[in-house]
Simulated scan of single mutants.
Amino acid sequence: MTSDTERLMKVRARQKKRKPEFNRCDSHKKKKLSPSWRRPRGLHNKLRRQISAKGKLVRVGYRSPKAVRGYHPCGMKEVLVKNAGDLLGAEGCAVRIAGTVGMKKRDEIEAMAREMNLKVLNPTSGGD
């Protein structure tokens, strides 16, 4: 990792500490509303009108530096893998195995990743 990338990772970590949690308006009041962000569009909506006690709106200023976007905190690019063939394009990256992959194929992917000296972010617990 270069010194510039290392510096930007520290900047990103500092920004993430200060970044508020962006939850959907009134999601804590109603069970049917998931907390995933939706832009408030109502005419009288306090969040849309930016009343300070109601939370923050998602803005471009909260974004992390472009050079380190998509990096895992360990400093490696994160790649989602669905089959063993996807590992060939993941040189020097941290690998995350997709949740829809079954146990048989997962073991195959993990074995191949071990051979290629790749870091698996979500290995099987207690396997092997």
Rank of each mutant, 00 (worst) to 15 (best):
E21I: 15
K17Q: 08
E6A: 03
G70D: 09
L33R: 13
K54P: 00
T100P: 00
M1V: 01
K119P: 02
E6P: 00
I97M: 01
R38G: 02
A84I: 11
E91Y: 03
N117I: 03
L118F: 02
M76C: 14
M112V: 10
K54Y: 12
A84C: 11
R114Y: 09
G75L: 10
D86E: 04
L118K: 03
L47Y: 01
A90H: 05
E78I: 06
M9R: 01
S125A: 09
N122D: 07
K30F: 11
R63P: 01
E6N: 04
E21G: 06
G75R: 09
K19M: 12
T124I: 13
R39V: 08
K30V: 05
R24F: 10
K105R: 14
G102Q: 07
G102H: 06
R96M: 06
T100I: 02
L118G: 04
R48F: 08
V101I: 10
A113T: 15
R59N: 08
S125D: 13
R69V: 08
R48T: 08
K66M: 15
E108M: 13
V120D: 02
K31I: 03
K31Q: 07
N83P: 07
K32Q: 06
L8S: 04
K77M: 10
G61T: 09
M9E: 00
N83C: 06
